[in-house]
Simulated assay, not measured.
Amino acid sequence: MLRGSGFLTPAAARLLIVDLARAEGFDAVGICAADAIPHAAPRLAEWLASGAQGDMGWMTETAERRASPRALWPDVRSVVMLGLNYGPDEDPRAALMDPARAAISVYARGDDYHELIKGKLKRICSRLVPRVGGPERAEVKVFVDTAPLMEKPLAASAGLGWQGKHTNLVSREKGSWLLLGAIATTLELPVDAPERDHCGSCRACLDACPTGAFPAPYRIDARRCVSYLTIEHKGPIPRALRPLIGNRIYGCDDCLAACPWNKFAALGREARLAAREENRNPALAELARLDDGAFRARFAKSPIKRTGRVRFLRNVLTAIGNSGDPALAPEAERLLADPEPLIRGAAVWALSRLVPPAVFARLAARHVPAEADAAVRAEWDPSLENAA
Rank of each mutant, 00 (worst) to 15 (best):
C202I: 09
L96D: 04
A28W: 00
A21E: 03
L84F: 08
L20F: 09
S227W: 02
K141C: 10
S227L: 06
M97H: 10
E379R: 01
R137K: 14
G4T: 10
H233D: 01
R93T: 12
M150V: 03
C225I: 09
G268R: 01
I220F: 01
M81H: 01
L187V: 04
L273C: 11
L313S: 04
E90P: 00
I320Q: 02
G268H: 05
G181W: 02
P341G: 11
D89H: 03
C252Y: 06
V144N: 07
H233L: 12
A147R: 04
R314G: 09
T185H: 08
M1T: 12
T9C: 12
I124Q: 00
L267T: 15
A67F: 09
A358E: 14
S383I: 13
A266I: 12
F360A: 14
V80F: 06
R3F: 02
R65A: 15
P194V: 05
P42D: 05
R298G: 11
P153W: 08
M1E: 13
A36W: 03
V79H: 01
V106D: 03
R366K: 15
R280M: 05
A258I: 04
K234S: 12
K305C: 12
A41N: 10
G134A: 11
D325G: 02
R296N: 14
R223E: 02
S302R: 14
G175Q: 11
T230V: 09
A103T: 11
A103D: 07
A71V: 00
P369F: 01
P92F: 05
R219Q: 12
G293F: 05
N85V: 01
M56E: 14
L8N: 01
A95L: 04
R14F: 00
R272K: 15
I117W: 02
I220E: 07
D91P: 08
E139I: 00
L189H: 09
W177E: 04
W47Q: 10
P10T: 09
P38R: 01
P99G: 00
A63N: 11
A387S: 10
A271P: 01
S126A: 15
G200H: 05
D112V: 11
A34N: 02
I245C: 03
R65S: 12
F214D: 03
A346F: 01
M56W: 09
D325I: 07
S126P: 00
V144E: 07
C205D: 07
A155E: 03
Y86I: 04
A271T: 15
P260G: 10
R272Q: 14
N281V: 08
P42W: 05
R123A: 14
L20S: 03
L342S: 07
R366A: 15
L335T: 00
M97K: 14
C125R: 09
